[in-house]
Design a protein around this nucleic acid. Structure first.
Lengths: 356, 356
DNA sequence: GTTGTGCAAAGTTAAGGTTTTTTAATCATA
DNA sequence: TATGATTAAAAAACCTTAACTTTGCACAAC
């Protein structure tokens, strides 16, 4: 592929017999152009295939492009912490351009907090917004319609709401991801399998996210179709009471001695793995599947106390999302809208090659 | 993260009391600088944290940057065809910069052809080279040492040769990938499983690539450790004789009626799937695992005639590799060396979200 | 003692492709 | 004749590169 000597604004100006300024005004629809100039330039534009140099354009642009993100508050090493690091890496990567970035954090269990942070965000008049959504349609709709009104493009992370007018979505299909976990559990089952334990790990204000709920729906649907005879046994754990949590697990595994399969739809699988390893070392192996390659979980996979993780690549999600919004909003490139990330199974054999 | 008003060469020049030309000469080690200027500029550089604007730099750079790739010849929709498309997408993406790109193709079964194409490639005096390696150490070593001598940076795709001096590697760990296929096969096995069929699909000059061989090694090692009682039965198929191929399969499945698991380490799994579906429709289901999400294989997964694919993301490999080499060689950014791509399992449940 | 040559060192400036401000020209209105 | 509104050209800016130019100095030749 040889280099195609690119057509510049200057070339268009020469061919149309006007100045570069005029061409620029026409291309950007900035007005103050006579019909004659307009027509002459338009004719040249129709003849040739002009593609702007996005990088030179961004370089020459004088105003700083303000990015803002609103994300749920998060602990170290959590899913959203990794997303945020990905976003920050994106900011660093495009540091050569005039951009700024500010993160707003809301309490995911407090809709007022979300509204408040949205207001603060809007007050800074950002050019581009990245949203880690709250699980409440009308509040989200209210926020996105405000953005639409002001003409501020925004990206959705993690949860897709097809009815919104977002520029970009990055995330995983959680229904399908749940079905996939069903497949893996089914593979791990044998003819003697009667029950699968489904742990719901809650606490410190944790409620199931939209993602977690959808994973469960996808999982149950898969099991209904492919393994209708296997019973799914729910177990509720409350993390804020560690002793009570262990008691619940001990009682459960004692009263259900035949359980050999268990899963949970958030990143807490390491809690179950650690309990079995430390508190019931003589219990036969329970095949464990969980979500999110946080350090504690990765450790469990490596040592064999848990068997499967389904990974989400939160860091890539953040980085790629930022890159896409940068390409779309700053470089004004054309970017695809929906980006469903791979549903990736991690085991002892491939976890060393999981790089996020 | 607020925008940090960036330090420019001009600022350094002012603070050091020299001209921008001198600063540029020092930064790029172009010589013709007095010790006094050198010291003064160095002092400023030590004080402040200068990071060049890579994009402005590339924009101002006068010469076109020549990329060249040498790849095995390939058919439509094959692994290498997808890699090449990824590379071409990379070229298109950075079209705003002055780059050229030329692909050289060699016959992977003819070392002379490789040498010849290497010579042609070197004659074009490229600035950056991307290599789809031939499976022959000394010939590769000869080529890479020539590149080293000329100071031409190069990337390796697919196969890593740690002893070379490449700037970038993109590929999959094939030993580990083979072990992963062992894990999946083991999961699919049950207590009655005595044998697994390992199909080697050859023909039209096909010999096992380095990747395929390593997958088999990783697989056998895994099985030896975890399922030593399961026998691995080799079956050789020669693709250039379609009738003969079907005969071999029919004979094999007839003489081995208990086989319920089969795999193959290249992209030909669809051949086995189609045979079973069309020629032996009454045969009990054989769980099939193969490699590479080429269209024919994806089709088999969707219709259920094959069960597992291990994906390699060849398009991403090409695109990411090009991007990395661009960032490293044109923008002069610092880029990590080895990039092991995820070992990804595709099934009916998640294949819709496999985007490469 | 002047002029000339050679060379290292450093400054100046024109790109590179675009944006945007400033300036200038044209025309119409009062 | 000035004032104002359009329109368009010119120029500066973004940051870096690299070719080009100038300066200054040492040394030699006349």
């Amino acid at each position: 592929m040889e280099i195609t000597s690119k057509i510049r604004i200057k070339d268009i100006a020469e061919r149309a017999g006007v100045s570069v300024g005029t061409v620029d005004r026409i291309i950007h629809g900035r007005g103050n152009v006579s019909p004659i100039s307009m027509e002459r330039v338009q004719k040249v534009l129709d003849e040739i295939n002009y593609t702007p140099n996005h990088y030179a354009s961004a370089l020459a642009s004088h105003n700083v492009h303000q990015f803002a993100a609103i994300l749920p508050m998060h602990e170290v090493d959590s899913y959203w912490a990794r997303v945020e690091n990905g976003l920050l890496d994106g900011v660093r990567r495009f540091n050569d351009f005039k951009i700024s970035f500010k993160v707003f954090r809301y309490d995911p269990f407090n809709t007022e907090s979300f509204k408040l942070e949205c207001q603060s965000l809007l007050n800074t008049c950002p050019d581009t917004v990245i949203i880690g959504p709250i699980f409440n349609y009308s509040i989200m709709a209210n926020f996105t319609s405000q953005l639409d009104e002001k003409g501020i493009p925004y990206a959705l992370l993690d949860s897709n709401w097809p009815e919104f007018n977002h520029r970009i979505f990055y995330g995983q299909d959680s229904l399908q991801s749940g079905a996939f976990s069903g497949r893996i559990m089914s593979l791990s089952a044998d003819s003697s399998t009667k029950q699968i334990a489904l742990f719901k790990v809650m606490g410190e204000g944790r409620v199931a996210s939209r993602q977690q709920m959808n994973r469960e729906v996808g999982f149950r649907k898969y099991m209904e179709v492919h393994n209708p005879d296997i019973e799914i046994v729910d177990v509720n754990l409350y993390v804020y009471d560690k002793k009570g949590m262990n008691d619940i697990m001990r009682e459960f595994f004692t009263t259900h001695p035949d359980i050999r399969l268990a899963l949970c739809f958030n990143s807490s699988v390491h809690i179950i793995a650690s309990f079995l390893k430390e508190e019931m070392p003589d219990h036969p192996h329970v095949t464990l599947l969980g979500y999110d390659a946080v350090d504690a979980n990765v450790q469990c996979i490596k040592e064999g106390s848990a068997d499967f993780l389904i990974a989400q690549h939160p860091h890539s999600q953040g980085l790629d999302c930022f890159r896409s919004m940068f390409n779309s909003c700053v470089l004004k490139m054309h970017i695809a809208r929906d980006h469903y990330m791979a549903i990736e199974l991690l085991t002892k054999e491939n976890i060393d090659f999981y790089k996020d």
